[in-house]
Design a protein around this nucleic acid. Structure first.
Lengths: 244, 244
DNA sequence: CGATGCTTTGAACTTGCTCAACCCTTGTGG
DNA sequence: CCACAAGGGTTGAGCAAGTTCAAAGCATCG
């Protein structure tokens, strides 16, 4: 049923996530609706952007996942992070002409270019917040790689992806779309594919997760968050305070 | 002899590094000279900034080193990166009111606040470039933690710090100031202090480095860079091409 | 000259890696 | 409808890199 998402679904994803960053005016929403009408389709395993390449305009992801990667001489590969639907590649590019990493599609994606200049203030604010969140994700990734063990790394990553998918409305209760292979997970978490496999099995046996056919269910996210010390990234000062 | 650096030395450091980002006008230089005249002195092990705290104005480092850190519940600690003389903490803060990490001084530092708004365009450009470089450093750190082994992590970090110290004019030939304890190195590289110690010794035995009394000498930086696959971060498109 | 903080050393241990094979599913072409 | 290829996932056995714990050495600085 979910083979080719409609334009409306694509738009909803982007709009939901941008609005989660910062409220959007009707004009801006109309502009997005127009932009989304002619999406670019990208096949799996294609470079959306190459390291060192000149960055032109921001590219919004409407559906599908991508990774930021670098390849070493000897074949080792590092995944720096994931790019999910609703998120924007190279959101703030005014003073950063060169791409710092290659971006590769993991599955079939649809994207759309955003205007590179003369952007409405609300959109520009949303993109800037997105950028700040991205830095928070890089920091979280450093913490994972530097100080967490295999289980913790995977769980912590799952929890991050979960909250990010929630932002664009793709979280379905405790189940989420999950198109990552064990190899990609390994390159992200600094482990080997074999060890990722064994760790996932252990997590399944413990009843922490269910993972099959591109879907991941976290049985008790709160408990898992507690276990690995996961914390939501907070970039805004004016975020709603609990029981304020 | 280098007990208390003069105002001129402090200024030189900041000016050199900012000018390396983007050329500065005479007016801007004069402004910096004024700002530097009354530096803030910070003792070792003090928080310059706390995670979650509201960010007010950019803070330029005139001398001394700091680290971006996070502490886990169980005492594990991760160092996300280093802040060196000439560099600016929270350079671009317009849409990022909350500090993402705590910043702690490693030794005695002197700093000065920069204007938070109404900044000249050249300075603002320099800070934006500095910000882009910082993202490059985060990415480099992820690569180190994810895919390099102990030797490689340390060497790669040394090479990065070397080029950064060069930017602010603190590299003296093949020797550089190096105020990091093995514990801090461990928290940065995701290793234990004990293993950092053994790895350093091995590097000394192999004649790769000399490290004593707060100074580090890399015997053959080019060879080391080759060995670990170190590459200088490139953020500008218009950087001079070799043999152009 | 005692205290404090940093470095060095040893021995046992664990986590995660390597290599190599096998299995299962899915899609494709004959 | 079957054969086969390709891309993931699973398994086992041996191994290596890095950890843990604990103690001792060595500076530097009041």
């Amino acid at each position: 049923m979910n083979g080719t998402p409609s334009h409306l679904q694509l738009l909803a994803c982007l709009e939901t996530r941008l609005a989660a960053m910062s409220p959007l005016s009707g004009d801006t929403r109309a502009m997005l609706a127009r932009a989304v009408r002619h999406p670019v389709i990208v096949k799996p395993q294609r470079d959306l952007l190459r390291e060192g390449q000149q960055v032109t305009a921001p590219l919004a992801i409407l559906s599908g996942w991508a990774v930021r990667v670098r390849l070493l001489e000897d074949g080792r590969r590092q995944v720096f992070g994931f790019l999910l639907p609703g998120e924007v590649i190279c959101g703030r590019h005014q003073f950063r002409p060169r791409a710092l990493t290659t971006v590769v599609s993991l599955n079939r994606m649809s994207c759309c270019r955003l205007p590179s200049s003369g952007m409405p203030a609300d959109l520009s604010q949303a993109l800037a917040m997105g950028q700040a969140l991205e830095e928070a994700h890089l920091l979280a990734h450093i913490l994972r790689l530097g100080r967490l063990n295999a289980d913790e790394r995977l769980i912590d990553l799952f929890l991050e992806l979960r909250t990010r998918l929630d932002l664009c409305g793709l979280l379905e209760g405790d189940v989420m779309p999950f198109p990552l292979t064990q190899e990609v997970l390994a390159d992200a978490t600094g482990l080997t594919q074999v060890h990722v496999n064994r760790t996932l099995q252990q997590m399944r046996r413990r009843g922490d997760i269910e993972l099959t056919a591109g879907r991941l269910r976290l049985l008790d996210p709160a408990k898992l968050a507690q276990r690995v010390g996961y914390r939501e990234p907070r970039v805004m000062t004016d975020e709603p305070v609990v029981a304020g």
